[in-house]
Write a protein that binds this DNA or RNA. Structure first.
Lengths: 188, 188
DNA sequence: CACTAAATGTACCGATCAGTAACCTTTGTC
DNA sequence: GACAAAGGTTACTGATCGGTACATTTAGTG
């Protein structure tokens, strides 16, 4: 059984797009950096856009898996897990190679709301929001949906600010703010 | 006295870069959309990068002027002005042509922290933060710097989320969160 | 009117863009 | 060993990239 070259391509392309951006990464650079021939690329994907969508799918899968698992590892109770969001965030931001959120960057480069790339990025964010909202329900918040939306605002803000300043400190500020919000949210 | 063509160029280029992105906007598109010849462009700016920097300077000047003036119009006391940040934010997000924060997008496209464009965008954010921090001092917050950073996290998060969902609702969530944070901050 | 600076049109540069055609090599399966 | 699918090599397309050369026209000032 042949180890799927397509998956290898998507994995490598993910790194390049994440590091250098979407428009700034040409197919020739992808050939050079992934070691996979252009003909092979275009046998698996009809266009660059299709490839970006596949890359975003992988990124979504990887990130959500890591994020959700990490929350469960860090904290035991739902209320603690809401706060652990920002511990996981801080870990991510201070890990080597951190370059911000790929989906925020995708939306920044593909602003048209009808664009498949834009839509897929928004879907990722919606799924993360729903996951946090579930935890907020378990934690017994008075307005779990509202609390989840607020916490996610802090999270997105911390990510873009961490990229701006080049350090993970915004996650600490976000955690402090989250603590205050959770304290007044009616969580058990 | 000749009306400065250079300023006209920067004004028009601002619209195009804001709407379409930096890498996705070529100099030829700029010629077509601004009605200014490429030769003239390169008499005022040696490179595309220099032009982007000029565009960001104008954007910074315009936005900070509008934002600070708006806060003073909306609210009279420092404490009220901290909250008015999110009223102004909501006005901006629901205004026609809103396409997110140009500086967040600049950082997303120019991730290298040494890049002049990246640096200039970060400078804009730092100046906004310092402005809000001054208000927090006037409002008598126990930790004005920390409160200002938290409020700015909410602001950045609201901006990127508003672009994601395509509406201004995140500003309302951010305002609600800000209200809770300000309430526990020791502000008069 | 003469002079000058600013802005123009047109045509071009080499490099890169996304994407393709034709042909060859590897690899796993029967 | 025959077969087929997957992957690779090389070279190419027309369009666009950022940027330039050069000659011409416009417009404000003395």
């Amino acid at each position: 059984m042949r180890p799927n070259k397509r998956d290898e391509l998507v994995r490598n392309a993910l790194d390049v797009f994440y590091r250098d951006g979407f428009h700034a990464t040409g197919m020739d650079k992808l050939v050079a950096q992934t070691g996979i021939s252009k003909t092979s690329m275009y046998k698996h994907f009809r266009t660059k856009e299709e490839m970006i969508l596949a890359v975003l799918r992988l990124r979504d899968e990887r990130f959500r898996n890591w994020f959700c698992r990490r929350l469960e590892e860090i904290a035991d109770t739902p209320k603690e897990r809401l706060l652990a969001v920002f511990d996981a965030l801080h870990e991510w931001m201070t890990s080597p190679g951190f370059k911000g959120c790929m989906f925020i960057k995708a939306v920044a480069e593909f602003q048209n709301p009808e664009d498949p790339i834009h839509i897929q990025a928004a879907t990722h964010k919606r799924m993360l929001l729903e996951y946090v909202q579930k935890i907020a329900v378990q934690a017994g918040a008075d307005d779990p949906a509202g609390l989840a939306r607020q916490l996610m605002l802090l999270k997105e803000g911390a990510i873009v600010t961490a990229v701006m300043w080049g350090n993970g400190d915004p996650a600490l500020d976000a955690k402090a703010a989250a603590q205050a919000l959770i304290a007044t949210s009616g969580c058990r």
